[in-house]
Design a protein around this nucleic acid. Structure first.
Lengths: 194, 194, 194, 194
DNA sequence: AATGAATGAGAATTCATTCAT
DNA sequence: GATGAATGAATTCTCATTCAT
């Protein structure tokens, strides 16, 4: 819906508290009162923004991973490419929003941790396990590796959707991605003797 | 000052807008009006929180790096250890706060980008360049490497100071750090033939 | 509007600072917040009170003067009668208000001086000049005469809208007016020999 | 006392409500708390300002009138000259202040009406009665004449201490005074035939 | 379904007043 | 006597929410 899209943009830019429903309505091209026909109140709208938009994206990634059959490093590349896409889309505002408002919406934080982060980590751990199983990676503990794998991308996502908007410092997402993949593949390469 | 410490804790936990000065005063053990003896208004207090606390910490890191003479990988470990310390201290709330409020305080975002991020990146680039110069690392472009180096730590910092507070998912900072260092050193190791 | 009328009454009675918007709202039979739908803030309301009410009254006097053709002393009586009317109406609160708040609203004072006082003085000077021209008055310098002409009425106006409300001393406006006209006509009568 | 003088200047310029005790203290060259050594509270200070300063001035006028023996028109001139003096001194701020704050300090208004206005009117009525008795003025009812006599001067006083401070329009007090005396003496001159 | 005028609870801010030094 | 740091009641202003149209 238009309202959710407008709300996402404004919530992400200003935060929950600083976003006026009047501005959301204005951005969505409707009147203030109309929001209340679709959402019980501001909190309800906020929850809808976080819930409705992210899960489909995650499902798409899971599906893409599922059907993949080639080398694990291609799978890794595929995953990262999805990430870069999200960084560059409006959707990237959601993680930023959840980080910002976690303190005021603990159940949103929990929902996000359970439904997005946990599932995302599971995807990655499966990829790593697959690589180890197939002898493409040396044996590593997947749990400890996850932050190393997603951290750089997540950081760039948050940067782009917050401080980066107000600074001249920018990152070439794709170049960083290549470097990251390069380091990872070398760092995970099986020991020559093994 | 007590006020700044109380304000940091509350701003980081709830965000700028959702923090009432009355609560800050209460947490600092003073009356509402007393805040106005030291800060012109709420914004002024916010700026003070961000500005006063972080620069000294950064300066300490810079000084520690400066005097180091051993192998570059030790330097890398030293840097990361500082990071882990910050993650685990109250200070870690500041980056989270700046990410959250960048949209409402563009000049704070800029200040942070210029004084903290740019300086932090410069430190890292110097370490990487040193490693390459000394033949400890293979030749790499430092700029592209920075997010790969700090991303994982930053992510854990933000996690710990936002969503992580409301989720059962936790990270073993030191274990992740070891994994990250391990991957990096292998990934940056000079080509055998070079 | 109801709001402006209520505000005039309260501002005139208590002054700008001592008037709470809640009381204005209450007197106007609306809620506090409603005022802000029509006026940006308290100052804006104050300005509206002063600006909206007085100019139409002045224009009416000017028009009445314009069409008059009889003896100048009748014109003088007409003018004074308008004054007495204003003294006795709610409108009389405005000059009192402007006098009281001139220090805090210099641009209101200026506006009042330019739009009300200067125009009022011009009207009087025209009447005096007409009387001299027609040989009804002896030659006098109009500028010096103006305070003499309007001072007594203005004083009674201010009295009625401030101290007089709290004192037993009262003036019979119409009797004073007659005395004033009497003195003036004798005092302005052409020299017998001239 | 310095405090009262500073308070008069500020109260007259800004009104009671808009005057901060801190500014009064500052203008008097003392600390805020010191005011409370001499006055119970802000209202008490306000009352002192109005009460202490004006009565001595009035007593001086009464005394001057008392001893006068010459023609009544000289007495009138003497009275007016006192007025002009007050207009031009800091003391002129008091009537302006009382007019402004009458609504918030009814007992000050009453005090002023009884002690200053009533006494002032009595002085004037005595002068007029004297002139009539001595055959210098034609018979007039003194009560109706008082506003005619003092109105012009009072108006200029209020102008000078409020709106006039913020406008280019100014009055030549002494010139207006001469005109006023001239009109009065002609207007009060005994009928030729009487 | 949609509107937008009206509401009023809630937060930032001010400043008279107090009191330990 | 004098100070000025600390207080908290009081006021302006905002904005989520309601509801008559």
């Amino acid at each position: 819906m238009e309202i959710v899209a407008a709300a996402l943009a404004l919530f992400a830019a200003r935060g929950y508290g600083a976003t006026k429903l009047e501005d959301v309505a204005c951005a969505a091209g409707i009147a203030k009162g109309t929001i209340y026909l679709y959402f019980a109140n501001k909190e309800d709208l906020f929850r809808a923004v976080v819930r409705q938009e992210l899960l489909p994206a995650l499902a798409r990634i899971e599906a893409a991973i599922e059907v993949h059959t080639g080398p694990t490093q291609d799978l890794l590349r595929l995953l990262m490419a999805h990430f870069v896409q999200m960084i560059e889309s409006e959707l990237g505002g959601i993680p930023k929003l959840v980080v910002s408002e976690a303190g005021n919406f603990p159940e949103i934080a929990q929902f996000y941790a359970d439904e997005v982060v946990a599932r995302g980590m599971a995807i990655i751990e499966r990829i790593v396990a697959r690589g180890v199983d197939r002898g493409e990676f040396r044996p590593v503990e997947a749990a400890r590796l996850t932050p190393v794998l997603v951290g750089p991308m997540l950081c760039m996502l948050l940067w782009r959707h917050s401080i980066g908007r107000h600074s001249a410092i920018g990152f070439d997402h794709r170049a960083v991605l290549e470097t990251q993949i390069d380091i990872l593949l070398r760092g995970l390469a099986p020991e020559p003797g093994a």
